[in-house]
Design a protein around this nucleic acid. Sequence first.
RNA 1: CGGGCUGUAGUAUAUCGGCAGUACGCGUGCAUGGGGUGCAUGUAGGCCGGGUUCGAUUCCCGGCAGCCCGACCA
Length: 412
Amino acid sequence: MRQSQLFTKTKKEVPKNEVSKNAQLLIRAGFVHKEMAGVYAFLPLGLRVLERIKGIVREEMNALGCQELIMTSLQRKDLWEKTDRWDDAKVDVWFKSTLKNGTEVGLGWSHEEQITEMMKNYLSSYRDLPANVYQFQTKLRNEIRAKSGIMRCREFMMKDLYSYSRTDEDHQKFYDAVIAAYHHIFERVGLGERTFLTFASGGAFTQFSHEFQTVTDAGEDIVYLDRAKKTAINQEVLTDAVVAQLGMDRAALEEVKTAEVGNIFSFGGTKSEQLGLTFKDSDGNTKPVILGSYGIGITRLMGVVVECFSDEAGLVWPESIAPFRVHLLSLGADEKASEIYDMLVAAGIEVLYDDRDVRAGEKFADSDLLGIPYRVVVGSRSLESGSVEVKRRTDTDAISVPFGALVEFFQK
RNA sequence: CGGGCUGUAGUAUAUCGGCAGUACGCGUGCAUGGGGUGCAUGUAGGCCGGGUUCGAUUCCCGGCAGCCCGACCA
């Protein structure tokens, strides 16, 4: 894409009243627009990052044999009454509205009830199981206090997966496979080393749920980390008994601040019974479907990446989720730069080409702010030497690559 | 939901109970052209409502909005 055609602009000033690092940088770089507290629009560059994260998650979900669908934001009241979660006293994040005919509807803050109710239409025999479905959906939650930029919003993108299994054993097997897939996802977005499987409250259904917690000061959770085991215990369930049960040594646990990027739950058959989701097993008996739920906050994940990798000059995107792979800068060498741009694009490399008529300093500063992994500079020096300067966003020095070797450089 | 702070051009900020200033941005011109360049010039502002006052952007009250701390957070 030619940068002269990108409608967004960068800003030098940090937005007033915006303390969170991720929001400051994403707004300055033109990745997001803040509509109101906890509500952000994703602009072209931000959307590209979001889509790349979704792409990785989608690949991993599909590899588990999950099927993608999308539910609705408007939800029926009667569904939520079945599990006693319509009452504002029970769930305090509801946005609710009323149809013209007086019918009350809820705006989806979660889709467990709705999706499970729908699945009743399709799951009636053990032959229909297992079934695993997921979606990327905008969740609407009336948070009392939105904060931390895009990390805790009233409107945000979540991937939620629901598993329907025949037996506890089948369920457990899939649950473990999801854990492995989640590790893989966080690895791929660059957060693998600092993301830990964490034992957390299981609510009414099981003793523990599992969270994926990423170490960052921008987080809201406190977990106790066993680095050797790559697992942690959320402060909310930390007791001597729990530490002993999990075979950890309390003295070895390290207290760290983290952000929750994923959360997975086993519901057993309880929720299915509440909702009437049963199946006929091969022995002729009617049994509740065993249910699991698995979430990843896509927009929050993007915020956490920003928090973890950015520096004083701006954003730093891991290659796997960067909006573009290459940022091509023309310094008064538009003809040659355009030629290189066409060549790279033809080779299938995603390039943002800064073809604007602005000062070199501004181009460099913007390039650092946008955080695209590779910067390629074409200028008078290039024209003399027949090569371009290539620099990684995370490096301080550039290397020289001949014009003819450039495509190959980015293809490996 | 408890507590605290704040609302001045598109953005970031200053001043003041009596003509609202600066920087960035945006427009124009000239110069410049490898780390947000220089000079000149133009553009644009007091969140909303009420009160006090000769006069309110400033003081008071209410509303709305934003930020922070805590609580909350399948």
